[in-house]
């Protein structure tokens, strides 16, 4: 038998073999990723007396606050849907992005106890994180659906509903991809950790999450050049109509997937170099 090179990361012979190895690893660890996902989920709520209830809390709390604000006529009105609905939908989108970003950017730090000594596929951890994101997104979407009923907002046609869900997935993928791209640097320096904690709030301050902004205002002009505004408006358009272009949700889905694959492959390449520095 010919000696098989253990160093599959070193000197990638061709992109084909890199992708093949990647797919092999994904197939190899699909069950272990599922096991890991279940363990992470159990661990997340282990010391919580209310358990999974906490997964619903942020969205429910937002809904309560926004409904109260709407009744007190504190929110700007949207032409298409009630202001509270607009806000709840926006928070669901923002949370999806943020959760994905935060889950993956700590990939190396969270699993360093294993990565420093074992050659287990990194893909298992990434896939487990993605499964957890999918789970959280489904929880969030179930609340969004119940808010549709509560505010009597007409449901979109099935195609548009699919596009809206694709947009949600795109946002999650974009957040996860961005998180994976910065994960190696988050492990190497505290500065990135601080910036990563601050950056999302800076982005969402310039994105219409809670209330629609008027185009003529300063915030409106800033929001207009923020790509997330376009993506959010696209998903809103697909979900309940409005000013955005639904096709932007599809574009967001595709771009999110590309960003995720880019971040994932970057982490695979960066792994031994990052682990080496984590040891010192």
């Amino acid at each position: 038998m010919a000696l098989r090179s253990k160093l599959y990361w070193q000197l990638i012979p061709s992109s084909n073999s890199f992708i093949k190895k990647w797919l092999d690893d994904v197939l190899f660890c699909r069950f272990s990723a599922y096991c890991l996902f279940r363990r992470q989920l159990a661990q997340q709520y282990r010391y919580s007396s209310l358990g999974l209830f906490w997964a619903f809390v942020p969205t429910i709390l937002t809904a309560v606050v926004l409904i109260g604000s709407q009744r007190a006529q504190m929110l700007a009105t949207s032409a298409v849907v009630p202001a509270a609905f607009y806000g709840i939908f926006g928070v669901a989108l923002a949370q999806t992005f943020l959760e994905a970003l935060n889950a993956t950017r700590r990939l190396f730090i969270a699993h360093q106890h294993v990565l420093r000594r074992q050659t287990l596929p990194l893909d298992a951890f990434i896939m487990a994180d993605l499964m957890q994101l999918l789970f959280s997104m489904l929880v969030r979407l179930s609340i969004v659906v119940s808010v549709y009923v509560m505010f009597s907002v007409p449901a979109p046609n099935p195609v548009m509903a699919m596009i809206a869900v694709l947009g949600f997935c795109g946002i999650a993928c974009a957040g996860a991809g961005l998180g994976l791209l910065i994960a190696p640097f988050t492990a190497l320096t505290q500065d990135v950790e601080h910036v990563s904690a601050l950056l999302p709030w800076t982005i969402f301050a310039t994105t219409p999450v809670f209330v629609p902004v008027t185009v003529s205002s300063i915030l409106g002009r800033i929001a207009a050049i923020n790509p997330l505004t376009w993506v959010f408006d696209g998903i809103r358009a697909a979900a309940y109509g409005g000013e955005g272009h639904a096709m932007l949700a599809v574009t967001a889905g595709l771009l999110g997937a590309v960003l995720l694959l880019l971040g994932w492959s970057f982490c695979r390449v960066a792994r031994p170099h990052v682990v080496e520095r984590l040891m010192m």
Binding site: L7, P272, E276, M279
Partner: peptide, 9 residues
């Protein structure tokens, strides 16, 4: 660590 493949030579 090199033998187990955790880091590269």
């Amino acid at each position: 660590n090199l033998v187990t493949g955790v880091i590269l030579p």
